[in-house]
């Protein structure tokens, strides 16, 4: 009886809440009459003065770069917390919680694919301001390459120290570029480099630098997550 009541209550609430979202009418011009939405300003300013071809990147890294710094910190913290939770349960290096041997097709195939995956990841984050993608996507692609290697080779190991150095240096680059902008332009994360020519690789001022740092950071962090979880000691054999 109690459950039925709860379900009824939730259904009623859900109906009205969903109703209000349908009222907004996404996909049509849904802004209130008379307001000037910031999206138009973003689109206009992406080409000039920012000189970036990818509007998503200009919003993520420049207009709302402070949020991105925060999100990068969220990821960093999530990795820290995961490491802290699984600390006691970690094996000695080389041991795994999931032990199985991959077939020779997988091992030789992944050897072939690994450099290509890393290259694709690097391409995606280096060209973040020109083409779809960016630091987060490129970082995830790189981490997936390491996942492939970890699955294919039982004794493949990544140096924890190296990961943490890359992670820290990338984070310092992001915050440091922000502080340099603060010193040169007067506001945090402000662009202080020449913006170059639209659609060139070297354009957009500090945006590519920040996105490359984000790419390294996300790649290192997600690889660290995979590595930590793979080496977690299970309940049964611990």
């Amino acid at each position: 009886m109690k459950k039925v009541l709860v379900i009824l209550l939730l259904a009623t609430m859900g109906y009205y809440i969903a109703g209000s979202y349908f009222d907004i009418g996404f996909g049509q011009p849904h802004f209130v009459q008379g307001v000037k939405p910031v999206k138009d300003i973003y689109l206009a300013k992406t080409v000039k003065p920012l000189t970036v071809s990818n509007a998503v990147t200009s919003i993520v890294v420049n207009f709302r770069g402070f949020d991105t710094l925060g999100e990068v910190t969220v990821l960093f913290l999530a990795v820290t917390v995961l490491g802290s939770l699984l600390y006691k349960k970690r094996h000695a290096v080389g041991e795994r919680s999931v032990l199985f041997s991959a077939s020779s097709i997988v091992t030789s195939g992944s050897k072939l694919l690994f450099p290509a995956i890393i290259l694709l990841g690097a391409y995606v984050f280096i060209h973040g301001h020109l083409s779809p993608g960016g630091g987060f996507q490129g970082g995830v692609i790189i981490a997936s390459g390491f996942l492939l290697m970890l699955l294919a080779y039982e004794n493949y190991s990544v140096s924890h120290t190296a990961l943490s150095v890359v992670e820290s240096l990338a984070g310092i680059t992001f915050a440091g570029v922000g502080l340099l902008g603060f010193m040169h332009g007067g506001t945090f994360l402000q662009n202080f480099l020449p913006v170059g020519v639209l659609n060139n690789l070297f354009s957009g001022g500090v945006i590519p630098i920040i996105y490359i740092a984000v790419g390294f950071k996300v790649g290192a962090e997600l690889t660290g997550v995979i590595y930590t979880v793979l080496h977690e000691k299970g309940q049964s054999n611990g």
Binding site: L69, V165, L169, A175, F182
Partner: peptide, 20 residues
């Protein structure tokens, strides 16, 4: 005010290196 955010974040990224 931005230093209230920037300095601790910078320090958080630095601390693992300093710990080494």
């Amino acid at each position: 005010p931005v230093l209230f955010i920037a300095i601790p974040l910078m320090a958080a990224f630095l601390i693992p290196l300093l710990g080494m």
